[in-house]
Design a binder for these strands. Structure first.
Lengths: 124, 124
DNA sequence: CTGTATCCAAATAGATACTG
DNA sequence: CAGTATCTATTTGGATACAG
């Protein structure tokens, strides 16, 4: 069932369709510019709504609300309401969300390694 | 310079700011729902414009054009024009783009591992 | 403090037709 | 074949005000 492919420097393409579907799925789950950024922050420390809002500079409350709701709906984070007045709400990653931590570390690693090149892309 | 943090189950937050910035950078470079999906395909096999277009079902020509242009501008892929008539244009990953392959494998791995849970999220 | 609602501006996506 | 141009529809974003 192995398909042959002319260029031996590339692996058989058919074997990779599963990977590509899996990538599409993952990206759809993490779609939205901020989801992974929020998730990464929460991997390192539980945070409150206003704390996240202040920490991610160009992010409006409306967008943060929606992203948090999405993440919670998908089971990636937990929302914990403190019994205080005024209310304090703390967000933290769930076990499921924590399983993305390795991935987020890998992304960070790549970003650090290629930092200069990435940033010079943005200037153009 | 190590900051202490109350909850020992989380690493010091300050150490992680660099990671978070790096994640934001990387995500900005790969922003757009399709960039990583295109890149992943090209990691496994060079492809032509129409081939990619047919392969990624819900992707319009206009969007593909733009994504390819972005990827090329950022040095992640190469565009190779064949000397034929009608013209054939082949896209392939650059060496720089290939450095994302480990990452794309990791994303695929996570997606495969959590496939059922991801897909059940979409149904809701 | 933690949101939601509303209104409006801007960016993005799809369809179609068209060019070299 | 490999795109670009144009128009329109949809989505997304920011600002502000307001509620629990």
């Amino acid at each position: 069932m192995e398909s042959e492919f002319a260029d031996p420097s590339f692996p058989p393409f058919d074997n990779c369709l599963k990977k590509i579907r899996a990538i599409d799925d993952t990206m759809e789950l993490l779609a939205g510019k901020w989801k992974l950024s929020i998730l990464a922050r929460l991997c390192y420390k539980p945070m409150r709504y206003s704390e996240i809002l202040n920490d991610i500079e160009p992010l409006s409350g409306k967008v943060l609300s929606r992203e948090l709701k999405d993440l919670e709906m998908n089971g990636l984070i937990n929302r914990c309401v403190g019994d205080t007045k005024p209310p304090s709400v703390t967000y933290s990653v769930s076990e499921y969300g924590m399983s993305l931590r390795d991935l987020s570390d890998k992304i960070a690693e790549w970003g650090l390694l290629h930092r200069d090149r990435i940033r010079s892309s943005f200037k153009k």
